[in-house]
Design a binder for these strands. Structure first.
Lengths: 205, 205
DNA sequence: CGGCGTTTTGAGAGAGCTCAACATCGGTGG
DNA sequence: CCACCGATGTTGAGCTCTCTCAAAACGCCG
């Protein structure tokens, strides 16, 4: 998820870091937009509040992700942003970014490309969630994230994180990986998984 | 999902419609990109093929959705596009779009805004899939798609489509809606659902 | 050595999925 | 006007699979 190289240095240097305590509010729905944020560390959740005061979580952004991209094109934020953990975010001011886009079409194109990449990634993950079997969901991930050698996949961080990414409990993931290893379908080297068989299919109508 | 108003008329008029038979291939992974497509009718699926010849579905695009946005920024397509049903797509040539973006920053901005909106929508749906209870998932949808009156939601098409959108079987959706109505939580008027209570919360860590 | 988080395995239960039957609605043609 | 047909909507019953709660082994770091 290379979401770092889309920003021209001009704008990047205009970024302002801001630390957040757990539970601290970054911005609220309806408040004026100042720009978009990149999560440097910790977790920030985007949520909307209904009239009873309860919140519905729209997204939980982890390090490396951006939030409020749409704020560039809207005068107000459309949801609340609250730090779930102690966190650090970097603010890229709206005006600086938009001005740069006008001045420099290449930068605009890079930004669009980054957005397009995010869309592809999100669609892939959404499709993945339609797969109910843990094994097939894992296989789907493998199919989509195959390394250049065509038979191994690098694991992004801990298995727990991987489980969360897949939308599985870590127990289910452990168990299924164990089964797949027992069935000689995969083999686990530290941080990597090697495929020992061809992948199966997932039919959707 | 207003994905129609982002295209300047200049480009829109350059769009070329193309009918597809069910099963027909629109483009293949690795082939040169000519532009992005809008689905006018039917369904088109994006898929990757692994070495055994099996396919993994990345996305199934319905009417109104665009596919291959990323093709604008890449020399080749990164996956296959195949018509799942008889369909019609409209091609917007890459060169025409990119040229227009250079000439007209407003158009570029509109495009970016559309992409950003898509990202928000996809994130919302992804978050929704983390909710396992059918009832809470439906409530989440309501919270996010509340009408301006704050107490009703318009249903997008048939209940079957709605179920698919939610990632539930239609049976589960029917049953849960029936329960919610019995519990006096909602009321169903044709094409609309009225909320009779405040929404509940969904806690995520 | 003593925590703390990750990894791993166990057992049980619940919730949605699957298969199946039936009702309902809208369109089509005799 | 009615019979037919397909798609959508609805309800029933059983089952599988993951989630949940629990406990223990492992690895890392102070």
């Amino acid at each position: 998820m290379s979401e770092r190289d889309w920003l021209p240095a001009v704008v990047r240097s205009a970024g302002v870091e801001r630390p957040l305590e757990a539970g601290e509010t970054l911005f609220r729905q309806g408040s004026r937009t100042v720009g978009l944020y990149e999560v440097i560390s910790g977790k920030v959740r985007l949520a909307r509040v209904d009239r009873s005061g309860r919140e519905a979580v729209l997204h939980s952004a982890s390090v490396g992700e951006t939030i409020a991209e749409a704020s560039l094109f809207s005068p107000t934020y459309h949801c609340d942003a609250i730090a779930t953990t102690k966190a650090v975010v970097r603010l890229y001011p709206k005006a600086a970014i938009l001005a740069e886009f006008k001045r420099n079409p290449k930068a605009a194109e890079a930004f669009m490309a980054m957005l397009a990449r995010q869309i592809m990634d999100l669609r892939t993950r959404l499709e993945q969630r339609n797969i109910h079997s843990a094994r097939d969901r894992i296989r789907h991930y493998f199919a989509v994230n195959l390394g250049p050698d065509g038979r191994s996949v690098a694991l992004p961080g801990s298995l727990k994180e991987f489980a969360a990414h897949l939308g599985l409990t870590h127990e289910a993931l452990y168990r299924t990986l164990a089964k797949m290893q027992k069935d000689a379908e995969i083999q686990r080297d530290k941080g990597k998984i090697r495929l020992l068989r061809r992948l199966y299919d997932h039919d959707h109508t």
